[in-house]
Design a binder for these strands. Sequence first.
DNA 1: CTCAACATACCAACCGGTCGGTATGTCGTC
DNA 2: GACGACATACCGACCGGTTGGTATGTTGAG
Lengths: 201, 201
Amino acid sequence: MTTGDGRSRLLAAATRLIRTQGFAATSVEAICREAGVTKGAFFHHFPSKEALGVAAADAWSEVTGRLFAEASYHRPADPLDRVLAYIEFRRALVAGEIADYTCLVGTLVQEAYGSDPIRAACGASILGHAGTLEADMAAAAEARGVADVDPASLARHTQAVLQGAFILAKAGGGAAAVEEALDHLKRYLRLLFANPGASGA
Amino acid sequence: MTTGDGRSRLLAAATRLIRTQGFAATSVEAICREAGVTKGAFFHHFPSKEALGVAAADAWSEVTGRLFAEASYHRPADPLDRVLAYIEFRRALVAGEIADYTCLVGTLVQEAYGSDPIRAACGASILGHAGTLEADMAAAAEARGVADVDPASLARHTQAVLQGAFILAKAGGGAAAVEEALDHLKRYLRLLFANPGASGA
DNA sequence: CTCAACATACCAACCGGTCGGTATGTCGTC
DNA sequence: GACGACATACCGACCGGTTGGTATGTTGAG
């Protein structure tokens, strides 16, 4: 990683290393080596390793936010179809090495939730992304006449399923574990929105 | 933690520290301090820190295995009720600090899946536990005449939802995030097994 | 006497972070 | 357009403390 300015190269290197090894196991020196800069540069751009963690989470929110905003799953006219298309979009993202498709902030918050700034940045990232699904969830519930569904809660649940699937993937299941979880999630949503009055709550 | 022999004290201390700080951030010295033994004792019982990680995962499997085997959620006559009771049992376990109710092996494998022995031990723990749910899942599907459900896959999914819920909890949602995810899981199972032929697969 | 179960002392490598210094602008002023 | 003041971006040596791990000793039970 030797393109762009020092700061973004450090961020990219940190993201890659944290996704493969975790935050604590990734040393500042290793990030610098990967980014092709020195420790002096690191501490010029970030006051501490913790601050780098926060910046990496924020950068992750921005990059993934753009990716999802520009994706084509928003196109279907039916809101449920949009939600289902979102899940298919997530499935298409699951390819290559585990570190290539797992979530930076999920990995980060799992081991660094004890640091309040990092926890807040990761929480904002996950919840912010969940928030982008809320409107479609609500519209789907409305369109199908399903009353006892909390769109925000349902949106959060999609993220819980994804995060959990990543752990099963790391535990040995690989990409197949994520696809399997996504199938269950899809089925849940279909059952939920296809059965007004029988929502099982 | 100063009861029992050195080895189990080290295991208990490691479990507690890893659950709160993660594996890499937990030093051998910190584990020894917490267990009230010296480093000599540590390396007498475990050849390396990695081996301690494996042993902690194995011990976790054993302890939780006993806990779930002896729990009362196996009592209901109806298999679906048993599965639902399992989820309620999991909900009852969610209390106190985050580190008190989150999963050791889930935390461990997230950051240490790069170590094959640790990955294997964590995978065996999660999948082994999922396996204990399989029979009830299969019986529920059979009893309700729901065909296109893979009991093993469904059992794995319950674990994915739980692991993901723990991450949302760490991201700021706390115990409520886990309970919310458990509600969705329950609803999914109810919808799935209450609607033969409409399983949405 | 033996052997497991520890304790003590120690080591080289590595950790996050600091610090003095340098090269390259940028900007206001005369 | 020349000049001083200041900012930004970065370098790499260095620091004290911590790391996982080792070598050697002690102790108590069988």
